[in-house]
């Protein structure tokens, strides 16, 4: 900011400084927002409330929010198994947020291939799976990625911007509904994140 105020700089340089300032400010804003969100979720200031709503709509809404981003990278989003509608006890707003965080990561960490969405109903849990063909994870990272601020090691992951808060927020949202998020992955081949919701 100071640099852009110095008279010795050209208009072009100032514009570039300001543009960088804007980018950084947006990043700080996003980080603050994410930190507040997780703090409020954990302390119960934000209530995650299950209501009977269409889970398929929640999934489709989340997918819509990353479609532009995926299209820009040439990544098709394939909806593999999804009924037309499914009335299911969940918090549609927060579940969408959790799904968006997972989908956002899938797009960010996938260079080529596709992202596949599927919904499966088991006897006790119903889960939405988000599978990507991205950089994947080593088994010892499975648990660590859900810890706050953790960033996956390795060149490919470090090149992608992130705060390390998206996954902890997503897991907290699912846990507050009696569900969970798990990951299965293979380095270099891709990851599948499963978002579990209790059937009753």
């Amino acid at each position: 900011m100071d640099l852009s105020l110095e008279p010795s700089h050209t208009e072009e340089e100032r514009a570039s400084f300001l543009s960088e300032c804007k980018k950084q400010t947006e990043k700080i804003g996003w980080l603050t927002d994410a930190l507040l969100k997780i703090a409020r979720l954990e302390t119960g200031l934000i209530a995650v409330t299950k209501i009977s709503a269409d889970l398929v709509k929640t999934v489709r809404d989340a997918v819509s929010s990353v479609t532009a981003q995926a299209t820009a990278k040439g990544l098709p989003i394939i909806i593999e198994r999804l009924p037309d509608t499914l009335s299911f006890a969940h918090d549609p707003v927060w579940t969408k947020e959790a799904l968006c965080n997972i989908l956002d990561n899938a797009v960010k960490y996938t260079k080529a291939g596709s992202i596949t969405i599927a919904l499966e109903q088991g006897p006790l849990y119903t889960h939405v799976d988000v599978a990507d063909t991205g950089i994947g994870l080593a088994p010892e990272e499975y648990a660590k990625i859900f810890a706050r601020f953790y960033r996956v090691r390795g060149h490919a992951a470090q090149r992608v911007e992130g705060t390390g808060l998206g996954l902890p927020i997503a897991r907290e949202i699912m846990r507050q509904q009696g569900g969970n998020i798990t990951v299965a992955s293979e380095l270099g081949k891709g990851s599948t994140f499963s978002l579990f919701l209790q059937n009753c």
Partner: peptide
């Protein structure tokens, strides 16, 4: 996955401390 989800959820609900002894990284993520 189903059993671990339930173990984790039940323990959280009751404030119960748990230790899972395993060789499996997939189980550890709970």
């Amino acid at each position: 996955v189903e059993v671990l989800n339930l173990l984790r959820a039940s323990a959280s609900k009751l404030g119960q401390t748990i230790a899972i002894i395993t060789h499996d990284e997939k189980a550890a993520q709970f």
